[in-house]
């Protein structure tokens, strides 16, 4: 089957891509000043050279760089991401522990931005230049141009500090009940602001994409045919215009989906969301090489997987496209 063959070929490619990513990330990280041993020693208040050297030996940091790289690649090939130097826990455990929180946040933001974005774009295109169009365009532009952390801070200020409606920090109320519906509601209340903050940017992107694409499709011949068939407007918009207009949106959505698992460093940090983004951020501050490399690797794999999925989705939506080279 063509699709299986396509996936197989892309996976073979992916191995090389991932290898390249590991090497580049590995070297980039080592370019940053300081290493985990120095930082741990510094935090422990010890400046004893011997202690640091001992730590380095313990983490294998005293060996030549290319040997370390080689060892790392070899470990990864055996699906071993190593230990976090700081937390003394396997890196894979840390990542999987944080993943649900990140997926919840990014997934909700993804669905929100895609759904609302396409809806707004379609509405705006119905009467280009009308008041609804102007309003949506301005809204999209504002969402597009607003820095994400600033928006997050303003939301916190408004809804948490002034109005006191929503919690500003974390994923669940500490000490809250652990069970059932109450817990879900609690998480949902915590989720609202970060998801909105994260989704608004992409929502703006989708709204603009959809609008432009709809306007283009509206002028095409088959829409004229649909009108000449005597179809009602809503049917023309939905079955003929929107279906064709949504194609470019899909490629962008695939791009966004690839970044879902990488988390959102800024939003997770602003809202104290315990996801992978913050894990990576903390690991960076502590020069926790293995953990950071693990997060990067994991993210890269997800991007590749979602790219393949996007290509396949494309062939499902558009029969003209064959998965090929």
């Amino acid at each position: 089957m063509a699709t299986l063959e396509f996936v197989a070929r892309r996976l073979v490619w992916a191995v090389f891509v991932i290898l390249g990513i590991i090497i580049v990330n590995f070297i980039l990280l080592r370019l940053a000043p300081g290493d985990p041993a120095a930082i741990m020693a510094g935090q422990a208040g010890a400046t004893d050279e011997q202690y640091i050297a001992q730590l380095r030996a313990q983490f294998g940091l005293d060996r030549p760089l290319h040997v370390q790289l080689y060892t790392y690649i070899f470990d990864v090939a055996r699906l071993d991401l190593g230990f976090s130097a700081r937390q003394q826990v396997p890196v894979a455990d840390l990542i999987f522990q944080r993943m649900p929180a990140t997926l919840l946040l990014t997934g909700v933001a993804f669905l929100f931005s895609l759904g609302v974005g396409i809806l707004l774009g379609a509405l705006a295109s119905r009467r280009a230049g009308g008041w609804a169009d102007s309003f949506i365009t301005v809204l999209a532009l504002a969402a597009y141009a607003t820095p994400i952390y600033w928006l997050g801070l303003m939301l916190i200020l408004l809804f948490s500090v002034w109005l006191g409606w929503l919690p500003a920090y974390g994923m669940a109320t500490i000490g809250g009940g652990a069970g059932g519906l109450a817990y879900s509601l609690d998480v949902a209340r915590h989720l609202l602001m970060p998801a909105l903050t994260l989704g608004l940017f992409y929502m703006a992107v989708y709204a603009r994409l959809t609008r432009a694409s709809m306007l283009e499709v509206q002028d095409q011949d088959f829409v004229k045919t649909a009108k000449a068939k005597g179809l009602p407007d809503w049917r023309i918009t939905r079955a003929h215009v929107l279906r064709n207009a949504v194609l470019p949106v899909i490629s962008y959505a695939g791009f966004q989906a690839g970044h879902l698992v990488g988390g959102a460093v800024l939003v997770e940090t602003v809202f104290g969301w315990p996801g992978i983004g913050r894990l990576a951020f903390d690991a960076l501050l502590q020069r926790d090489y293995n953990l950071l490399l693990g997060v990067f690797l994991f993210t890269a794999i997800m991007v590749i997987v979602f790219n393949i999925i996007t290509d396949i989705v494309y062939t499902l939506v558009d029969p003209r496209i064959e998965v090929g080279r």
């Binding site: 095409q220 088959f222 045919t225 003929h240 279906r243 064709n244 029969p319």
Partner: peptide
Amino acid sequence: MTALNPLM
């Protein structure tokens, strides 16, 4: 070539 909806 263009008068029919390509996706239907």
